[in-house]
Amino acid sequence: MKLTSEAERRAFELGCAVGLGFTQPLGQMRPGSAGRILVVSGGDRDIERGLLEMGFVEGARIEVLHRGWLNRDPLAVRINQTMTVALRRCEANAVLVGPLLERDTGPVAPLGEPLVS
């Protein structure tokens, strides 16, 4: 994605680009920002499976709640309003997050199908 302005570059740096309609890896998002998971793929099959088993699945709504006090690591992420999971930013970067959609209000939306290929 080509960045068009200084403000947008800043949004990515601050970890709130998803709120402006861009996509961003979960590991770069800051507490308070929410979005919907577009793709889960770590390259590593085991990490991908681990993430999927903890509920990080395409279509799930996520919200970053907290960051660790040292080096802003790890993250505490709420998935679909029901479960909170702690993970390191390094693994979180295997999750690509996009903006919330109007129709996606509840957690019971179709899950498991990549929204972006």
Partner: peptide, 8 residues
């Protein structure tokens, strides 16, 4: 090992 831990 990645840290993937539920915070109940």
């Amino acid at each position: 090992q990645p840290l993937l831990m539920e915070l109940p």
